[in-house]
């Protein structure tokens, strides 16, 4: 297999950025080792022949569950659970 399959600290650090999850150096170290073991074990999926097999997104396939287009207002205060507010706005961090 090519390099892309190598589980190393660099990969874990990259994932942590994608996932917006700050990790300490110890966590990176620990997770790198654990990921190697876990993903190695998961590779047993390769042994299953799934040629022509459709993926199952749900245990039973349901379809066409739709709602009619009616405006039904929700009576609530959306800001009740936040401290980060200004007037009727949520307040968020800056972009850069």
């Amino acid at each position: 297999m090519s390099d892309q399959w190598t589980i190393d600290r660099g990969l874990v650090e990259r994932i942590s950025k994608v996932a917006r999850l700050e990790l300490t150096q110890d966590e990176v170290e620990k997770f790198t080792g654990q990921l190697k073991v876990i993903l190695e074990a998961f590779r047993e999926l390769d042994d299953v022949d799934t040629e022509g097999v459709e993926p199952s997104f749900h245990p039973q396939e349901l379809s066409n569950v739709l709602r009619e287009d009616e405006a039904t207002p929700w009576n609530w205060d959306p800001l009740e659970n936040t401290e980060h507010r200004e007037g009727r706005h949520f307040k968020g961090p800056r972009i850069q």
Binding site: P78, E86, H89, F90, K91, G92, P93, R94, I95, Q96
Partner: peptide
């Protein structure tokens, strides 16, 4: 989003209207 106190790259914080 409303960028308060500057543009998209210089604001202090954002206000969010959903």
């Amino acid at each position: 989003l409303v960028h308060v106190g500057g543009g998209i790259s210089s604001s202090l914080y954002t206000l969010i209207d959903h």
